[in-house]
Design a protein around this nucleic acid. Structure first.
Lengths: 346, 346
DNA sequence: GTTCGCGTTCAAACCGGTTTAGTAACCGCC
DNA sequence: GGCGGTTACTAAACCGGTTTGAACGCGAAC
């Protein structure tokens, strides 16, 4: 029975006939080690199959080599919204290239979320965090500043923040959607919004209002929903409840999930899309192109955002000065769920 | 300017007037500390706002207090498939209760995946891992055994494995779907499968075959796809290409995403669902109930699986003997996408 | 009054790395 | 031959916890 113990830096030093310090120097590519010795150490390390212990290193340099992400969303929505996995995949792509890990926490509500950040910081488990799903007047900004925890926010907060922000801007996408509908001839354009306590929820709503105003149109009806299919369906029912007269001819949804649910509610009411009702989504989910009719949507790039956010966070942790990060604007993808409105009833 | 340094166990010991050892004992709830001293130590810790350093603890007990998950899926599919986020949420729920973290890695392909596990193990970054998306003859089982890394597999592998397995079984769900269709009168039941290199892909396919055989029906046409909407659409087109005569009257899809894409392909071909074609999905995604027609699907419980898998893994890491874990069988949720087949053409 | 046993506490070693201060050897040079 | 400077390397301290072995104080037993 051989000992399955992992070799340590001591073993490598012994085999190579040098001190621990020398091994450490070689490992970190520091100068001051003769080439011959360097090779001997590398050979020893290789023959022992040595990989430096993460814990040992983390302790001595007091870094965690990990960044954190705390998500406060009910698990069922987490599953339905394709944003998170794509964002996480992007983050991971950058992190794994640099030997960093992502420490994830999923909590049920906002209170637990602050606790989550507090724990991660208190235990020194992460070197920095991402701030997602910004809320209006988000208290987490102050919390993280108090904890002196480096952070990158996804979108610029509406409260003063010294943290670099990934400048995602939902407004051009919504504006483009409304403009597209206006150009098709729509004049009664409704909105199914996300929760107004979230920044993205309220930003998209205000962009919709502004775009209508800019087009010289009165603000149409708006229903606040919760980004879920169930919520989208219910909101759509509320909008389509009135008689044909006052009913909107187009609905701008704050995400694809609600829009897709809206499509089937329309069908259920005997309202043809896009002949009698135009519909736009947001996110450009994979499924958007494969429902009927294929959904006009706003394409965003959560994967790319994840990559950029991670790069910025690592730079910030490394002590560099990091400013806000620009990202390409979202673009409207026109498919078959939008068309000219029906002729006005006489 | 006050020092923002985090207090250490030494500071707590000094304030409480005891040794580091005493503080450690109190922290870990060990006996052998007088009640008065215990209180003094707790007070000191509290007044300093001390939280033990994760790195320090991890090093001295040589545990990582973290478990790993390596995902080898292209990012775009990760976003579309609601399985992962739900599973991860379940895992997290259990982990965060016990102060453990989840270290996630998303890699592009299978080779990088093995590398990922090797790195996590080599650096001692995790105490155990989950094995997801089992492949036929999965080489990772042997790898993890070689690395002596505790693991829990999601589903029982088709190769010998000493690791506890979460006994998810897709067969009853598929069987129920086929039986449901047979009872409705269908006799030509096709299948859109997942990649056959995955265990869940081939298990579902075989279950479909077996169910047809059991019903005394010949195996219908099968098309192997890749679990994406695009793949599902393409597969559906292939199945519906033939004339009305040989065309299947029902399609059993290996997941909801492909089934939903299939719905719109049918519509595009002028084939009414469920009047002329019945469709079943798998996963019972939130969206399944909100497409038209609402999709008959098989409900699974990835959130619950995550919880159970995490509990088993932690127990295994703690040195307990852990056997396979039973989970409630998947259940068919009948909605409006299935109905009796059209009367045979004369 | 010593001895024993017990509960309480401390000092020191240890986990596996990094980092700093210091030393030995070697070089060229005056 | 002694000096200053460079290079290559070592020994030891340190990061922040846990754990062990010994010491101490005290009451009961002999």
């Amino acid at each position: 029975m051989t000992r399955p113990e992992r070799p340590t830096i001591r073993d490598v030093a012994r085999v190579a006939g040098v001190s621990k310090g020398a091994v450490s120097f070689v490992l970190n590519g520091r100068p001051g080690v003769a080439e011959g010795t360097r090779q001997r150490i590398l050979d020893a390390a290789h023959s022992l199959g040595w990989t430096p212990s993460h814990q040992g290193r983390a302790l001595s340099v007091s870094r965690a080599f990990a960044v954190g992400l705390v998500l406060a969303r009910p698990p069922e929505l987490l599953g339905a919204d394709p944003f998170f996995p794509a964002f996480i995949a992007g983050v991971e792509r950058t992190l794994s290239e640099r030997g960093q890990a992502l420490v994830l926490q999923v909590v049920p509500d906002a209170a637990a979320e602050e606790d989550g950040y507090r724990q991660l910081a208190g235990a020194g488990r992460v070197d920095g965090v991402f701030l997602l799903d910004l809320r209006v007047g988000d208290p987490r900004i102050a919390l993280l500043e108090e904890l002196r925890m480096p952070a990158v926010t996804i979108a610029r907060p509406d409260v003063p923040s010294d943290f670099p922000a990934l400048l995602v801007d939902d407004r051009p996408g919504i504006t483009a959607a409304v403009r597209h509908l206006v150009e098709l001839g729509h004049r009664r354009i409704a909105h199914v919004a996300g929760p107004s306590r979230f920044l993205h929820g309220s930003v998209r709503r205000r962009a919709w209002e502004q775009a209508l105003t800019d087009a010289g149109l009165p603000a149409g009806p708006v229903v606040e929903a919760d980004f879920t299919a169930a919520g989208g369906a219910q909101a759509t029912r509320a909008l389509l409840a009135g008689g044909r007269a006052g009913r909107p001819t187009a609905i701008v949804y704050a995400n694809d999930l609600m829009a897709i649910a809206g499509l089937s509610v329309a069908l259920e009411h005997g309202i043809a899309v896009p002949a009698q009702l135009s519909v736009t989504g947001f996110d450009n989910t994979e499924l958007a192109g494969y429902v009927s009719p294929p959904l006009t949507s706003v394409r965003t790039d959560p994967y790319g955002w994840g990559r950029s956010a991670a790069e910025a966070l690592l730079a910030l942790i490394a002590g560099e000065t990091v400013g806000d990060i620009a990202v390409p604007p979202a673009q409207l993808v026109v498919r078959a769920s939008t068309a000219a409105p029906p002729p006005p009833t006489v």
